[in-house]
Amino acid sequence: MEAPLVTLQSGPREKLRLAFAVNGEERELLVEPYKTLLEVLREDLGLTGTKHGCELGECGACAVLLDGELALSCLVPAVECGGRAVTTIEGLRDGPELHPLQAAFADHGAAQCGYCTPGMIVAARWLLDRKPDATRQEIADALAGQLCRCTGYQQIYEAVESAGRVLRGLPPLPPVVAAVHGEEPHGR
């Protein structure tokens, strides 16, 4: 019996049809094989919330959820995404209300320049989807692929912990402020 035909193929300058779900919406477009998911999201779909800092898988800024799993969009050729579901930072909230993670990042000062923030929040979402009561060690393990140059990571721990509480139906934690010399510490 003859081997079955290759189901999909394209020349180096031909575009391929890509049909996939982005933030719950079915999208269909033609893409060059050389384009990564990151490029298609930003350039073809105008979803510039997903950032990039290296395009080599070395910083985490381009993180998205691919079929619910944390993935780096800079490392995935878009043509490999047919039939899959992608969630980007734009898909985190449904309506005008911020997702609890977004609200917590805003309240706790976990976003300074905000450039690593979309990837960071998506990675945190991936964690909290599985473990809303994640410990600090579990947060570190899950977010260890996301580099941040502004925060020193501390407020990110605090924001993820606070959002995890909200997702478990508990009240959020108040933002931590520094102790003032000579005064009783306020906040936590």
């Binding site: 919330g49 980007t88 905000g114």
Partner: peptide, 12 residues
């Protein structure tokens, strides 16, 4: 909250 933080957490 910082006045510009919403755009940073939503990717806008």
């Amino acid at each position: 909250r910082k006045v510009d933080v919403r755009g940073k957490v939503t990717g806008e």
